[in-house]
Design a protein around this nucleic acid. Structure first.
Lengths: 368, 368
DNA sequence: CTGAAAGCGCTTACAG
DNA sequence: CTGAAAGCGCTTACAG
């Protein structure tokens, strides 16, 4: 699908000629007359020159008025009146060409399955809008991986790139590091790339200590089989807590990181001869699946088995579940990330380190 | 947060002078030397002129090679080799300035609470990427409503605007209609604005007929208090079915369109002297809350009360719920919408009508 | 098929 | 404080 604008190519007379042709006539009127019928009308085609003509000043003055603002009160007033009347807004695209920023921040979505990502995406979108920037959101598709997405983002001269979730290979990280455009990661801790993440190791540790304190002795870590970064860290944190208490680390894997995956993995765990008395799940969806499996086995939660999740997705708080979980403190993460982006926009070199945000243990019914 | 590029303003010699200065030297080398230290390096700054110099052709040739393609095999080969070596990609921003499209599609998110919207957003993002366009996603914030978001989208000369969800007033629709840029609505049926939507009236009718057929006689419609378009249509469809069967339409409202809202509204319904034997809920989240309320009242579902949702969100299929629902057939909606966008990109006038997609009744445990 | 030139809408030193 | 001019990186009639 190649998009071409419907309007005919503009005639070739120079700026001066055009100014004369326009006179003091409103560009709207002119546009209507030229209209080909299909693309109807108006607005966006008003340019700084139109405003300048109407206000009786130069294009430069109009530009300054909407830019650094070095204009006299009188001209400012005239320009603003003209702009208002014409409905003029500077063309962000053209503006960015002169060396200013585009005001665009690319969001590379490498993973979209987990509802946690939905929340992250929403918060980032809001934060970007609040920072008066626009989000260019590029999902990873079957045909386009992170590298490809990055290229697309670069084509639009974005001010910064945020990689959200997903498995980004070291090779790709190397490429990203070398870019002119600052790249940040959200929710991962890959070396050499700045960003923010929940302190997964600490989360694993806190969760483990809590389960131990509440009297659990046979604690199992449930996760999908893949070796993502945050997965390993959570596991390591839990292992450290168990190790300190002289307890073993049980484990069970599943292929998919989902409700069904959690259901299946927990089912296998519950079928073991020595059933675990606590499940520490890689994330909340997994935990909810496990919860469902416990019900199928007629196990009481938390009496027979405690279940602890990670992410504290909104559903965890639902009365139907009351899932205990570790809250990654998304708002703090988003705020830190936006601060980093503000820094590079102010000309600072991009950070190369990941800010870890401390997760909070949220205790509800499934583990207490 | 105003972004300024860190690099110093380029010196003022004209193109010819610059060409000479560059010679056949790679732009990369030059860039490294100029580097201020902060913004490190490389890539994106390679321009068509660099490629032209390296390939020994004109800028025009390079442009054609990446554009309509009217170049000889020989020059094409040389240009492609040079571009490859330099890592050149055309600057999409600059390219769009000449009258071509920006390749940008704006997604105006007027509502982000419902998980259904998450799914819509994901599907639209994927579809836009597949159509080889980029999504500019602009959420409605406390400070910026749809009108403001539209202005921002227009600043970037997007090819089309998609308004997703939310309450868009008639006044705003008027404004949107008048735009040069084609605007489409997703999931609503406001007059005068093209788009796609689930046939809510038909959904209400189908759901009502189904409940009646399964023997229900006291059927209540549960919804948030607001009078959104789709809400009214679903209600009207249900009312039509009930009317035809000579049954009354019970009703209960809630302020928020959420799990808690559904829980509260259902609680009030169950507390009535004459308890309804079926709940038709505005959406699945509402229905899940109602399901929870039924459990609290120790009502058997579906024996004592049938519960029917709308949207068929992924959770509806979870074994924990088994929620019967109406599936809006999102893929068909997205496909239709993208086809409309492709049309206007090919120069056709934007449609002014809404394509209705037939919802499908998905029967699970809560109503059967 | 190809290059020189003008133009897209804006900004920014420069010289008043 | 202000305007004329050059430039951002690209495309597109135009004239070879």
């Amino acid at each position: 699908m190649q998009c071409k604008t419907a309007r005919p190519h503009p005639s070739r007379h120079g700026r001066l000629a055009k100014r004369r042709a326009l006179g003091s006539e409103s560009p709207w009127t002119e546009k209507r007359r030229q209209s080909t019928g299909s693309v109807a009308s108006v607005k966006s085609r008003v340019t700084a020159q139109h405003v300048a003509d109407k206000a009786g000043v130069s294009r430069s003055a109009v530009s300054r008025c909407f830019g650094d603002g070095l204009v006299s009160d009188d001209t400012r007033k005239r320009i603003e009146a003209a702009a208002e009347a014409l409905g003029y807004r500077p063309n962000a695209i053209a503006r960015s060409l002169t060396g200013r920023s585009t005001g665009l921040v690319a969001l590379l979505l490498a993973e979209m399955e987990n509802p946690h990502v939905d929340l992250v995406l929403k918060k980032l979108l809001l934060a970007i809008a609040e920072a008066d920037k626009r989000a260019l959101v590029i999902p990873e598709t079957p045909r386009q991986d992170v590298t490809e997405s990055t290229m697309h983002a670069l084509d639009y001269q974005v001010d910064a790139i945020i990689v959200v979730g997903g498995t980004v290979s070291d090779r790709v990280v190397g490429q990203l590091r070398a870019l002119d455009t600052p790249v940040f990661q959200f929710g991962r801790q890959l070396d050499g790339l700045g960003g923010v993440a929940c302190d997964s190791h600490l989360g694993g540790l806190l969760g483990g200590q809590f389960l131990i304190r509440s009297g659990r002795r046979r604690i199992a870590y449930m996760t999908k089989a893949s070796q993502t970064d945050s997965n390993q860290r959570r596991r390591a944190g839990l292992a450290a807590a168990l190790d300190a208490a002289g307890l073993p680390l049980l484990e069970e894997h599943s292929e998919e990181n989902s409700f069904e995956g959690g259901y299946n993995a927990a089912t296998r765990l519950f079928a073991r001869l020595e059933r675990p008395d606590a499940l520490f799940c890689f994330n909340d969806m997994f935990a909810l699946g496990a919860l469902q499996a416990a019900a199928a086995f007629r196990l009481r939660v938390p009496e027979d088995v405690a279940i602890l999740g990670f992410d504290d997705i909104p559903m965890a708080a639902w009365p139907a579940f009351g899932l205990s979980s570790l809250r990654p403190n998304l708002d703090a993460q988003v705020a830190r990330l936006m601060a980093m982006i503000a820094e590079v926009c102010d000309g600072a070199p991009p950070r190369r380190t990941v800010d870890l945000v401390v997760p909070e243990l949220v205790i509800r019914r499934t583990a207490c």
